[in-house]
Design a protein around this nucleic acid. Structure first.
Lengths: 252, 252
DNA sequence: CGTATGCTTGACCCCTGTCAAGTTTGGTGG
DNA sequence: CCACCAAACTTGACAGGGGTCAAGCATACG
C-alpha cells in the first residue's frame, strides 16, 4: 500500500520492447512504432504492494504494463474491498482517468512491476494521426468490458466453488496468453487467499475452505502466496467456462 | 424473449434526432452529423421482451438506442441469469461484437425500444476519417467499464439492502441524465422484481423482502412492473454511493 | 370472467460469514 | 545457525443472511 514511485528514464526503445517479440502481439509498422516511441516518457518500477494510482486522482498517467502483475480495486468507507480485475503485461492502465474526469478505481502492484509511461496529453494526437492505434485502444477497452461481464456473472450467479474455479482458470489462461511458454508449463499465480476472497466477494475463511476442497481434488495446488493450476480442463468444467480464443492482440 | 425484429427504413435524419436536442449531449459539427447520417442504415423497433442480440452472434449490427430501455445479460446453462447493465437512450449497443470476434452477451428490450442501426462495416472508416467520433466511442466504452466496476463492487461487497439501494439510485440517476425534465419529476423505472434479482445476484424472494423494507421506510414505491424512487438522497446514503457528475456526453 | 404474470408471505434450511485459535513459512537480526 | 516475528494459511464452532419451497393474492389483459 506504500505510495513512493521510482520514475526512471526511457530504457528500452519500443522496437526492442520485450513484449513486442511475443507471438501473440500484432505487428506494428515502423511508423507506428516510431510514434509510440515518441509518446513514451519513461518507465515506472513498482515493488509488490505499491500503489500505482488511486481512485479520485485527476489526470493520472497512462501506462502499459511491461512486466509483472497488478490489480484494479475499489473500497467502501468501512474497508470492504472489491478487486475488479487483474492487469498483466500488455494491458493499458489509467485510460479511464484520461478519458473521463478522474480515476474511479485504484491500482496496486501484486508483484514487482515495470510499466511504460506515456505522455497523457498526447492521447488526442494519437486519435487524430493514428486511427489504427485508436482502434487498438478501443479493442482493449472492449476486451476489458468483456472480462468484467464474466466476473459479474461469476460473482452474481456462481457458487463459491464455481467462482474459485472460474477465477483460477481465468488467471491461468491469461498468464498463458502473455507467454510463449509451451502449454504443459505450469505457472504460479502470484496471489494470496485474501486477494482471491476480495475478487470473489467471499470471506477469507470461506475462500480458504473452498480452495482446500479444490486442492484436495487435485485441481490446484496452493503454494505460499500463490496458486498453481494442475487441471485446467476440470476447472473449466466446474466453472462452466471456456477461455476466450484470442487471436493476435494489439497493444500500445 | 421472442426473436422477430422489424427493420424500418431511415425515418429521422440525424440533424433532427430527438436525442441531439437534449442539453446533456455534446454538439456535433455539420460535417460530423452528415457522416453519422451516412452510416445510418435504418431503425429497429423492438417490443418489450424482444431479443436485440444474442451471445455468440457473429458480426452483429451496431446500434444507438434512441428511445426505451434494454438490458445486457449472460446466462449459465442451467438458466441462472445475470443482468450486466442496462442500456438507455444514447447508449451504443453491439460494439463488442464489432471489435471482437463475436458477442459475449445478449441484449433484450425491457420496454418498447427504438434503435438507430449503423452499417457495421464502416467502423474502420469512422476511425480513419473522424478521430473525434472515434474518441467518443472510446469515451462510451470507458464509461461502460466504470459502471461495471461499480456493479462489481456492489454485488461483491454490499449487503442485499445496500445493493438494492444502489441499483435503484443508479437507475434513477441514469434516467435523469437522459432527460431534460426538472429534478423534482419522478420516474418509473420499468423493471420487474425478477430483473432486480437477476441484477443484484439475489433470489426473487429475498429481493422482494428487501424491496419491501425499502418501501416501508419511504425510500421507494413499488408499482406494477416498475419502481419509483422517493428519496434518492437516503438511497445514496444507504448504498454509500454518489451519482457521477457527468458533463455533456458524446454519442454517435 | 378466466388466465397469466408478477408480487407477497411464511417456514425451514443451508451456504457463507464471523469469531477465535492455531500452525506453517519466510525473513531478519543477533 | 538459531530465535523471533510477521504474514499467510488452517481449522472448528457457531450464527445469520439469503436461498428454496410452497402457497396465496392482485392486477392486467383478452
Amino acid at each position: 500500500m506504500a505510495n513512493p514511485k521510482s520514475v526512471g528514464p526511457t530504457r528500452i526503445p519500443c522496437e526492442q520492447c520485450p513484449l513486442r517479440r511475443r507471438l501473440n502481439f500484432r505487428d506494428f509498422s515502423p511508423e507506428e512504432l516510431a510514434f509510440i516511441q515518441s509518446l513514451k516518457v519513461g518507465e515506472l518500477q513498482a515493488e509488490a504492494g505499491m500503489s500505482i494510482m488511486r481512485e479520485g486522482e485527476q489526470n493520472p498517467q497512462l501506462y502499459t504494463v511491461l512486466a509483472g502483475w497488478g490489480f484494479r480495486y475499489k473500497i467502501l468507507e468501512d474497508g470492504r474491498r472489491q478487486i475488479l480485475n487483474y492487469v498483466l503485461p500488455g494491458d493499458l492502465v489509467g485510460l479511464q482517468g484520461n478519458v473521463m474526469r478522474e480515476m474511479q478505481h485504484s491500482v496496486e502492484a501484486l508483484t514487482k512491476m515495470t510499466l511504460c509511461m506515456f505522455e497523457r496529453d498526447k492521447l488526442p494526437v494519437l486519435f487524430q494521426t493514428h486511427p489504427s492505434l485508436a482502434f487498438d485502444i478501443t479493442w482493449l477497452a472492449a476486451r476489458e468490458e468483456s472480462m468484467l461481464d464474466e466476473h459479474l456473472l461469476s460473482i452474481g450467479r456462481r457458487s463459491a466453488r464455481e467462482r474459485a474455479a472460474y477465477l483460477l482458470a481465468f488467471l491461468d489462461s491469461r498468464i498463458r496468453a502473455t507467454s510463449d511458454a509451451p502449454p504443459e508449463k505450469s505457472f504460479a499465480l502470484p496471489l494470496t487467499q485474501q486477494h482471491v476472497a476480495d475478487t470473489l466477494g467471499l470471506s477469507l475463511v470461506h475462500t480458504n475452505k473452498t480452495l482446500r476442497t479444490l486442492a484436495d481434488q487435485g485441481l490446484i495446488r496452493w503454494l505460499d502466496r500463490g496458486c498453481e493450476v494442475l487441471d485446467a480442463q476440470r476447472l473449466y468444467r466446474v466453472a462452466e467456462w471456456r477461455p476466450p480464443v484470442e487471436g493476435r492482440r494489439p497493444f500500445i
